[in-house]
């Protein structure tokens, strides 16, 4: 599947068919899990594919403790937003769609934004329910992924002084894929949703490693501290608060400005490396 900004506009059926055919075979995706055994006969499989094409993947987006900026980022996909929403069956969303109850049936993709307040019983119950009822759980944005700016909370504020512990989703339940950044980029949200719809594990795999505590000091500990920095300045570019200055080819993080969103480390070309084949095929358009 090519990135969305290279895709031509197509109908729903074509989109879904493309996503399903474009998903790489399990063996090629190099996952640790063994490829599933094929037990269905070709005719049955064909019928099943047709049925799946008819049924869109069920998606929910749930807000926890955050500013909903990442949801706005999702809607900032302008040109392809309607295509994106058309490709999924949007089941629960309190802001974009007025649905108040988290559905009880099984979801394919659950997108959570905002960190979890441990003292808010509703959020703790909700996130456990969402995890139980969904195949993929995506932590969208810094707050859900790493706690981001809510990490600085110490409680004592009105009107709920007892709300003091705001933690990443991964602290309570397993997060399949995290999207760092404050807010995380519209394009990466669209790419991730489409990849999850198409079970495109090649794209999703690195996102599995990005959940949990993050900070500008990751650059010191994980990149420079491991002899990996090449002074390209991508971290400083990615920083939403301009907390990173480049001097003599190395990042210098101003801890007063860092909001612990994790964008710098995730954007660093030396944190995870997409393969050359992936870049050639999906971005450069050379085969």
């Amino acid at each position: 599947m090519s990135p969305f900004w290279k895709r031509e506009k197509k109908s729903d059926a074509e989109n879904i068919a493309e996503m399903q055919t474009a998903s790489p075979p399990a063996a090629e995706a190099k996952t640790d899990a063994a490829p599933p055994e094929i037990t269905v006969k070709p005719a049955e499989a064909e019928a099943e594919v047709k049925e799946m094409a008819a049924a869109k993947p069920k998606v929910l987006t749930a807000v926890m403790s955050g500013c909903t900026g990442c949801l706005i980022s999702l809607t900032d996909n302008y040109d392809i937003l309607l295509d994106l929403l058309d490709a999924i069956d949007y089941r629960y969303e309190t802001t974009l769609a007025d649905v108040r109850q988290i559905p009880d049936d099984q979801m394919d993709i659950a997108i959570v934004h905002g960190s979890i307040c441990l003292q808010d019983k509703r959020q703790v119950d909700d996130i456990r329910k969402i995890r139980q009822n969904s195949t993929f759980l995506v932590a969208m944005g810094g707050c859900a992924g790493s706690g981001c700016v809510t990490r600085f909370s110490v409680g004592g504020q009105s009107a709920t002084p007892s709300h003091e512990s705001f933690v990443p989703v991964a602290n309570l339940v397993k997060v399949d894929f995290a999207l760092p950044g404050c807010p995380t980029g519209p394009e990466v949200i669209a790419n991730t949703i489409l990849a999850a719809v198409g079970a495109d594990l090649e794209y999703l795999k690195p996102l599995a490693e990005l959940a949990g505590f993050a900070c500008g000091c990751d650059l010191l500990t994980k990149i420079i501290g491991n002899g990996l920095c090449i002074g390209c300045g991508t971290c400083a570019m990615a920083c939403p608060t301009r907390a990173i200055d480049m001097a003599y080819g190395r990042p210098h993080v101003n801890q007063e400005l860092c909001i612990k969103c994790g964008a710098c480390y995730a954007q660093c070309p030396r944190s995870f490396e997409p393969t050359f084949e992936m870049i050639e095929k999906r971005v450069m358009g050379v085969e």
Binding site: P3, S73, D76, L179, P180, G181, P183, T184, G185, P186, E187, V188, N191, Y203, P206, C232, T234, M237, A238, C239, P240, C261, G262, A263, C264, A266, Q267, C268, P269, E273, P274, M278, I279, R282, V283, M284
Partner: peptide, 14 residues
């Protein structure tokens, strides 16, 4: 790094 940013634009909106 630019190609990775194009593929995964976490902190590179638009």
């Amino acid at each position: 790094a630019v190609r990775k940013m194009q593929l995964y634009p976490f902190g590179a909106r638009h």
